[in-house]
Design a protein around this nucleic acid. Structure first.
Length: 425
RNA sequence: GGAUGGGUGGGUGAGUGGCUGAAACCAACGGUUUGCUAAACCGUCGUACGGGGUUAACUCGUACCGCGGGUUCGAAUCCCGCCCCAUCCGCCA
């Protein structure tokens, strides 16, 4: 969530930012409302503190009076403290209600887009930051979409997944499974080479962790929950990995922290953006290698570029036609300040598939999870958090299969040969 | 699942209901000493919110000893509920 301090001090910037997300007059009133409620919070806080201070002073005197044997005076004071106590109780309750109200308002405000983010409402307003200039792969007569290729070569099986679990849980097998594992290995190796520490986190997280990255309270419906134990299946490695630093104050010289993790990702959401939900385009469980950075605010945008370049390199090595989009305000996620999406051309479906999303969240996440750093002067500040997929597997597999198919079989990109152990399917 | 023991500052670990935001030690940081390193010595060394102050240094107030409630004029300390952790047993990859 945004910091109240920032909302107060940079109100115009925030308002302008929210307009880029398509917010209009009425919605924008929240900002003024937040400032109002915060004023109220401060006032009440002060009143409460003063009351408590007075009662603390008296309690101390009572101790002294008792010591001196001045019983009557002590008793009189006790009565006064009791009155103060009643007052402070009421104030405390009042303050609690105000803070709850303030939090609710703050939770409803998305991150303020960076000044370089274009205005816009939908995906149509996204800006192509880097287009694919070469021709797309031309497929032979009778080329198939990946779900048919999967059948033909027995790579993964959706019906079997339904039998074991339900729809949206593909079963990979044979070379399909092997390809999956090869990609994971490749992505992790590349990330480690680029200076990211490999993490293998738990795939279940508790409530505090889910709250830290903002899955709770609002996006509860997106996650699978184990009710008996009050744990959630992670929707992305970002959740456990970023939370490693929750409630920590890291020395500035340790920044940036770079971490990478492979995990399966579990997503309940059925609501489809885009009607094309066949095959691997949209599933409840998929594999992903994530990269995460914790950065100094001064360097976070440079790091964002670095992450974009890293993902770009993966695309090139996999020999996939890709383009990079700079998302407009309206299409960005709630928590992001700036996001680049990577899309891969899926030749048989003849459409772009989103395979990576790289974002700078600035202090939106770190504020919530109290992830801070101590600068050279000992001052404590919120760190910036960034993350990106490098990469999401299911759709990459779809693209590789479709783009590389020939009548004789499917070619595996060269970089993967040492991981797959085969060159064609 | 059963039994027991625990949760105090970056770590270890004291703490009789008021003088404890919290001893001591370690780590860290600054300094003195030193041919270098080490040792020794001196000093600093929690966070959040709020007030004052030039959104400076600083200063004052409040809260926080797992979380939430209660008793009391006053709670780290007493009482209740919850959560978590460790160890042993059972089960198991």
């Amino acid at each position: 969530m945004l910091q109240v301090k920032v909302i107060r001090e940079e109100k115009q910037r925030i308002l302008n930012g929210l307009r880029k997300r398509g917010w209009t007059g009425k919605q924008l009133n929240v900002i003024d409302r937040i400032i109002e409620v915060d004023d109220d919070r401060r006032k009440t806080q002060k009143e409460l503190d003063d009351t408590l201070a007075e009662s603390n002073r008296m309690a101390k005197s009572i101790g002294q009076l008792m010591g001196q044997g001045k019983k009557d005076e002590a008793e009189a004071m006790k009565a006064q403290v009791t009155t103060l106590k009643t007052q402070s109780k009421a104030l405390e309750e009042q303050l609690g209600a105000i803070v709850a109200q303030l939090d609710e308002l703050l939770y409803s405000v998305p991150n303020c887009p960076h000044r370089s983010v274009p205005k816009g409402k939908t995906a149509d307003d996204n800006r192509v930051a880097k287009d694919w200039k070469q021709p797309f792969p031309s497929l032979h007569e009778g080329a198939l979409p990946h779900w048919d290729l999967a059948k033909k070569y027995n790579l993964f099986d959706f019906e079997l997944g339904v039998k074991l679990t339900g729809s949206g849980f593909p079963v990979y097998r044979g070379k399909g499974a092997r390809l999956q594992r090869a990609l994971i290995q490749f992505f992790l190796d590349e990330a480690v080479k680029a200076g990211y520490e490999e993490i293998l986190p738990p795939h279940l997280v508790n409530e505090d962790t889910a709250r830290g990255t903002g899955q709770l309270p609002d996006k509860e419906a997106q996650m699978y929950k184990c009710d008996l134990d009050n744990l959630y299946l992670i929707p992305t490695a970002e959740v456990p990995v970023t939370n490693i630093l929750r409630d920590e104050i890291v020395p500035v010289k340790e920044l940036p922290l770079r971490m990478t993790a492979y995990t399966p990702c579990f997503r309940r959401e059925a609501g489809a953006w885009g009607a094309h939900v066949r095959g691997l385009n949209r599933v409840h469980q998929f594999d992903k290698v994530e990269i995460v950075q914790i950065e100094h605010p001064d360097n976070s945008y440079k790091s964002l570029q670095g992450m974009v370049r890293h993902v770009e390199k993966l695309m090139k090595k996999l020999e996939l036609p890709y383009r990079i989009l700079l998302l407009c305000g309206g299409d960005m996620g709630f928590a992001a300040a700036k996001t680049f999406d990577f899309e891969v051309w899926s030749a048989a479906q003849e459409r772009w598939l989103e395979v990576s999303s790289v974002s700078n969240f600035e202090t939106f996440q770190s504020n919530r999870m109290k992830l801070r750093f101590r600068d050279e002067n000992g001052k404590i500040e919120l760190a910036h958090t960034l993350n990106g997929s490098a990469l999401a597997l299911a759709r990459i597999v779809a693209a590789i299969l479709e783009n590389n198919q020939t009548p004789e079989g499917i070619h595996i990109p060269k970089v993967l040969h040492k991981y797959t152990g085969f060159k064609t399917i």
